[in-house]
Deep mutational scan, measured.
Amino acid sequence: MAAGGDHGSPDSYRSPLASRYASPEMCFVFSDRYKFRTWRQLWLWLAEAEQTLGLPITDEQIQEMKSNLENIDFKMAAEEEKRLRHDVMAHVHTFGHCCPKAAGIIHLGATSCYVGDNTDLIILRNALDLLLPKLARVISRLADFAKERASLPTLGFTHFQPAQLTTVGKRCCLWIQDLCMDLQNLKRVRDDLRFRGVKGTTGTQASFLQLFEGDDHKVEQLDKMVTEKAGFKRAFIITGQTYTRKVDIEVLSVLASLGASVHKICTDIRLLANLKEMEEPFEKQQIGSSAMPYKRNPMRSERCCSLARHLMTLVMDPLQTASVQWFERTLDDSANRRICLAEAFLTADTILNTLQNISEGLVVYPKVIERRIRQELPFMATENIIMAMVKAGGSRQDCHEKIRVLSQQAASVVKQEGGDNDLIERIQVDAYFSPIHSQLDHLLDPSSFTGRASQQVQRFLEEEVYPLLKPYESVMKVKAELCL
C-alpha cells in the first residue's frame, strides 16, 4: 500500500493539533497551500530580480507567473513527485505547466533550498508574528487579574506546605514575570531571523556568478533584492546548502521555554482548584465526569500541561538535527523538520489560546482563602504575639514557653481530632496574655502579614508589564474561544 493518505478522510490519521486544537490561522501558515504558494512567490521574486539585473526574462513571463501564483494543481504535483521522487522539481514542473512561456526560467540558477529553506524562514517569521500578540493578550488578562487582587491576602506555599502570606495578585505576578520573559525572547528570536537568500547549491553562489558572467556586484544585488522582497532586513552571508540548523534550535528553545512557563502556571491553577481557592472557567453544560456528576475538573489547565510537556520535548529534535548536518548538509534534517517545526508552533498556539481562555474567566473564592488563612495564621502570628507581650512588660522566655504549650495543644486538636485551630481562643482565655487581649485582632490582621506584596504588584505592572504590552494595544480586544 502506498504511503500517505487522504487526510480529510475519517479513515486516515490526522494530527489532533490540526484537527482538534490549533487555530485556523496557525494551521494555514503550515498548510501545503501556504507552503507551495510561497515557493511560487519566491520563484517570481527571483525572476523579477534577475530581470532587473539584466537576464533575458520578459515582462510577459513575469506576468504569467504572477497570474498563476494561486493556480496550484495539487493532484498534478503529487503525481509528479511520485514520478520524480523530488518535491521541488515536482512543483517546478507543475508551475511550468500553467506558465508555459515562463517554464524555462522558473528556478533559474537556484537549488531546492532556495524555495525550501527560504519558505521555512518566512513561515517561522509569520508563525512567530501570530504567537506574539496571543502571548501579549494572556499577559494582559493576567495583569488585569493581578491588579484587581493585588491586596487580597492568601496563604503562600513553599514545598506545598503553608508559608508566609502573600497576595493573590502577587502570586499571579510570578506567572506574568515568566511570560514577559517569554514574550521578550519570542520577539528577540523573531527579529534575529535572517533570510537564507540566493546562495546556490553549497552556499557559494557559483551558479549565479556564472549567470551574471562573473559580476560579483550583481550577485550581491540579486541576494539583497530577493531578501528585501521577502520582507527581511538581512540575509546570511555564510550558508551551506541550507541555512544553519542552529536557527531551528533557537526558535524551538524559546517555544519550549514558553511551554515550561505555561505548565507551571496551569499546575498552580490545578492545585488551587483542589484547594477550592480558584477555578478555571466551567461552562453551564460542561460535564466533569461521566460517573461523578459533582466533579469540576480543571480540564483546560490539564490540557495545557499535557501539550506543554510535548512542546518542551520537541527542542531535542533540532538539537540532534543540527549535530548531524555533515559538511554542507545531509538530508537527516528533512523529514524531522517537516514534523517538529509545525508541531512546535501548533502546540504553542494551542496552549496560548487555551491559557487566554482560562485567564479571561478565572474565578476566585475569597471566603475559602480566608478560612485557610484562619487555619494557619495563628501559628504564624506567634512571633508577633511574643513581641507584643514583651512590649507590655512580659518575659520573652516565659511567653515563648506559654505559646509553645498552647500551640501544641491547638495542633493536637487540628491533627488528632480534625478540629479547627483554636490557638487564639486559648490565648484569649489565658490570664497571662490579658495585657494584649485587646491587640489580638490587630495582630491577626492578614494584611499585616503580606509585606509589600501589593506595592510590588503595582510597581511591576507599571514599570515592566504595561510598557512591554504597549506595541500590542491594537490587538488586545480579541477574545479566545474554545470549541473543545
Rank of each mutant, 00 (worst) to 15 (best):
A3L: 10
D6E: 14
G8C: 15
G8I: 15
Y13Q: 14
P16I: 15
P16A: 08
A22W: 07
A22D: 06
A22V: 11
P24E: 09
E25S: 14
V29L: 10
S31A: 13
R33M: 12
K35T: 08
T38G: 04
L42V: 15
E50K: 05
L53T: 09
I57W: 03
I57Q: 02
Q63V: 08
K66V: 07
L69G: 12
N71W: 10
K75E: 10
A77N: 13
E79S: 11
E80R: 12
R83W: 10
L84P: 00
R85N: 01
H86W: 00
D87Q: 04
D87G: 02
D87Y: 02
D87S: 05
F95V: 07
H97N: 13
C98L: 11
A102W: 00
A102R: 00
A103K: 14
G104A: 12
T111N: 04
G116A: 14
D117W: 00
T119F: 07
D120E: 13
D120K: 06
L131Q: 14
K134A: 10
I139M: 08
R141P: 15
R141F: 12
D144F: 14
F145H: 06
R149D: 06
A150L: 05
S151V: 10
P153H: 01
P153R: 02
T154Q: 08
F157H: 11
F157S: 07
T158K: 02
T158V: 01
Q161H: 04
P162T: 05
T166P: 06
V168S: 04
G169M: 03
Q177K: 04
D178K: 05
L179M: 11
N185S: 10
L186A: 12
R188V: 06
F195D: 02
R196T: 03
G197C: 07
G197A: 14
V198D: 03
T201L: 00
T204A: 08
Q205S: 15
L211V: 14
E213P: 15
G214A: 13
D215R: 12
V219K: 04
E220R: 10
Q221C: 13
K224C: 10
M225V: 08
M225S: 09
V226P: 01
A230M: 02
A230G: 07
G231F: 06
R234N: 10
F236V: 06
I238R: 01
T244M: 05
T244W: 03
V247N: 07
D248K: 04
V254T: 10
L258P: 01
V262R: 01
K264D: 04
K264N: 01
K264P: 04
I265K: 07
C266V: 11
C266M: 14
T267P: 01
D268S: 11
I269H: 02
R270I: 03
L272A: 10
A273T: 12
E277V: 04
E279D: 03
E279C: 08
E280R: 00
F282W: 09
K284E: 08
Q286E: 03
I287R: 02
S289A: 02
M292S: 04
R296V: 12
N297Y: 04
M299H: 08
S301K: 02
R303Q: 04
C304I: 13
C304K: 05
C304S: 09
C305R: 02
A308I: 02
R309C: 14
L311S: 02
M312D: 02
L314S: 11
V315R: 05
Q320L: 10
V324W: 10
Q325C: 14
F327C: 10
E328Y: 02
R329A: 01
R329C: 02
T330A: 11
D332W: 02
D332T: 00
A335H: 04
A335E: 01
N336M: 07
N336T: 14
R337I: 02
R338H: 01
I339F: 12
A342N: 08
A342R: 09
A342I: 12
E343T: 12
A344N: 00
F345E: 01
I351S: 05
N353T: 08
T354V: 13
S359Y: 11
L362I: 10
L362N: 05
V363T: 04
V364A: 05
E370W: 07
R371G: 04
I373L: 14
Q375V: 04
P378D: 02
F379C: 03
A381C: 06
T382C: 09
M389T: 06
V390D: 03
K391E: 10
G394C: 09
Q397P: 05
H400A: 04
K402Q: 11
K402D: 08
I403Y: 05
V405D: 15
S407E: 02
S407I: 01
Q409E: 09
A410W: 05
A410C: 06
A411Y: 05
A411M: 06
V413Q: 13
K415R: 07
K415F: 04
Q416I: 09
G419C: 09
N421E: 06
D422Q: 06
D422W: 10
I424K: 14
Y432D: 08
P435Q: 12
P435T: 06
I436D: 03
I436R: 03
D441I: 08
D441G: 12
L443P: 00
D445L: 14
D445W: 10
S447K: 12
S447C: 15
S448F: 10
F449W: 05
F449G: 03
T450Y: 06
R452T: 12
Q455V: 09
Q455L: 11
Q458W: 14
R459F: 09
L461R: 02
E463L: 12
E464R: 04
Y466G: 13
L468C: 14
V475R: 15
M476V: 15
K477V: 15
L484F: 15
